[in-house]
C-alpha cells in the first residue's frame, strides 16, 4: 500500500446558507489515478479550489504528503508539488504560448528573484518549456499569443502549464471541456502518456464515462456535495446508489 500524497478529511463547505460540500472524505495514493465524476454543480471544482488553497473550507482538513495544508495560500501549496488546471481556460492571454509554459517552469527554480540577469540566460526553463510543448502537441505555435489560439489549442496549453509546473500531484479539471468529439482522444492520449510515466499521482474531473473507466484506478462519485461512492471502476459500476443517481438506474456500461 503506497503512501497517501493527498488526503481530504471531513470536508464541509457552505456559501452563505447553501451547503455545497458535505463531509467529503477521500485520499489519493502515490501513483494512483483517481477520477471524480458527478453532475454539474455537484461541487467538484469546489473541492479543487479548497485543495489548491483558493478557498478555505467551512470545516475539515486537507493533508498533502502528510502535511496539513488547510488554509495555506495557493503558492505554498503549489510549492509542495500540488498543481491544478482549470475547467474554464485560465491562461496569460498577452504572453506567447512559449512564455505561458516557461513562466510555469520557472516557478520551480530558484532564479525568480533575480533582477539583474536577462531571463534568456536561463536556458533550462526554455528547454523544459519546449519539451512540454512537444508533449501537448503545440510545437510550431510557440510565438503565437495565448489569446489567439483555437479553443482546443487553449486546452492543450492549459495542460502544458500544469505539466510545466513540475509537480508530482496533478489535478485536472475537465481538460476536454468544450472540445469536439474528434479533438478529445488526442488530449486524452496525453493524459495516458503521463500516467504511463508512473511518476505522477493524478486526480481527474471528467464527464466522459467511456474513457475514464479504462484509465482510472479508482472513481469517486460526487452528487449534491456528497461522496456517494469511491472505489474501483468495476465496483462503482455495480454500486446501486451510483447507478440510480448517475447512470440513470439500470444501464451498466462496459
Amino acid at each position: 500500500m503506497s503512501e497517501e500524497v493527498l488526503r481530504v478529511q471531513n470536508l464541509k463547505k457552505s456559501f452563505g446558507g447553501i451547503r455545497v460540500l458535505e463531509d467529503v472524505d477521500f485520499s489519493l495514493r502515490k501513483g494512483e489515478f483517481k477520477t471524480i465524476i458527478g453532475p454539474n454543480g455537484a461541487g467538484k471544482t469546489t473541492i479543487y479550489n479548497i485543495v489548491s488553497g483558493v478557498m478555505k473550507p467551512t470545516s475539515g482538513k486537507i493533508f498533502c504528503k502528510g502535511q496539513d495544508i488547510t488554509g495555506l495560500p495557493p503558492y505554498k501549496i503549489a510549492n509542495l508539488g500540488l498543481s491544478r488546471s482549470f475547467q474554464i481556460t485560465n491562461l496569460f492571454p498577452d504572453l506567447t504560448v512559449l512564455e505561458n509554459v516557461r513562466i510555469a517552469a520557472q516557478a520551480k527554480g530558484k532564479d525568480s528573484l533575480k533582477i539583474l540577469l536577462d531571463y534568456k540566460h536561463f536556458k533550462n526553463y526554455f528547454e523544459t518549456a519546449n519539451k512540454i510543448l512537444t508533449m501537448v502537441h503545440l510545437t510550431g505555435k510557440e510565438d503565437l499569443l495565448a489569446k489567439d489560439l483555437s479553443h482546443a489549442e487553449k486546452r492543450k496549453l492549459e495542460m502544458g502549464i500544469l505539466l510545466a509546473m513540475g509537480g508530482d500531484i496533478l489535478l485536472f479539471d475537465e481538460p476536454t471541456a468544450g472540445l469536439s468529439a474528434e479533438e478529445v482522444p488526442e488530449l486524452f492520449k496525453i493524459i495516458e502518456e503521463i500516467k504511463d510515466t508512473k511518476e505522477k499521482s493524478i486526480l481527474l474531473i471528467e464527464h466522459k464515462i467511456n474513457i475514464i473507466l479504462g484509465i482510472s484506478d479508482t472513481i469517486a462519485v460526487l452528487q449534491n456535495g456528497v461522496l456517494i461512492g469511491d472505489d474501483t471502476p468495476e465496483k462503482i459500476q455495480q454500486n446501486q446508489a451510483v447507478q440510480d443517481a448517475y447512470f440513470g438506474g439500470g444501464a451498466v456500461l462496459g
Binding site: S52, G53, V54, P73, P74, Y75, A78, N79, S83, R84, N90, L91, F92, P93, D94, L95, E99, R102, I103, A104, Q106, A107, K108, D111, S112, L113, K114, I115, L116, L117, D118, Y119, K120, F122, I161, M165
Partner: peptide, 26 residues
Amino acid sequence: RLVNSPAGRVLQGVKENDARIGMLGY
C-alpha cells in the same frame, strides 16, 4: 533589464493573470 529578468517576467505574469501566477508557486 528588470522587466526582462526572471523577476520581471513574473511581474508581467502578475499583470496578465494575478491569480494564476500565484497558483504556479510565486
